[in-house]
């Protein structure tokens, strides 16, 4: 809502409820229509994530090696049900050596379950 600002937790739920009734489904690539709400680009090429189809420059030169393909981002941010080391229970440190994905992606280890 634009004119009423939700203040307490219940008001935020009302706001969400109203939004869910009135807003259209918004695809990942489009800017949210109507009111602007925080929108986190999840798993898109706006952020550098080794494994995705384009690199940070929009080309393919900086793509990671096939073995990491579709892995890194699934591990952290993506809902995609890929077989990745899970960062909650078993491999919390999988990407520990990868401080900046653009530079250190080679340090992402292989794991053998």
């Amino acid at each position: 809502m634009k004119h009423l600002r939700a203040i307490n937790q219940k008001a935020r739920r009302i706001d969400d409820h109203v939004a869910s009734q009135t807003d259209d489904v918004v695809a990942l690539q489009g800017p949210p229509q109507g009111q602007q709400r925080p929108h986190v680009p999840m798993g898109c090429s706006l952020v550098f994530s080794p494994g995705w189809e384009v690199d940070s420059a929009g080309g393919t030169a900086g793509l990671c090696q096939p073995v990491e393909r579709d892995l890194y981002d699934c591990y952290i941010t993506c809902y995609w049900p890929a077989q990745v080391p899970d960062h909650l229970n078993n491999y919390p440190d999988w990407t520990a050596k990868c401080a900046a994905a653009t530079k250190d992606w080679r340090n992402i280890d292989l794991v053998f379950p």
């Binding site: 004119h3 009423l4 307490n8 008001a11």
Partner: peptide, 18 residues
């Protein structure tokens, strides 16, 4: 400036238009 809505108990801040 604020409304406490009944019975939802939501609290909203209003702008001048509201």
């Amino acid at each position: 400036r604020f409304l406490y809505l009944v019975p939802s108990a939501g609290i909203f801040e209003l702008d001048d238009a509201c």
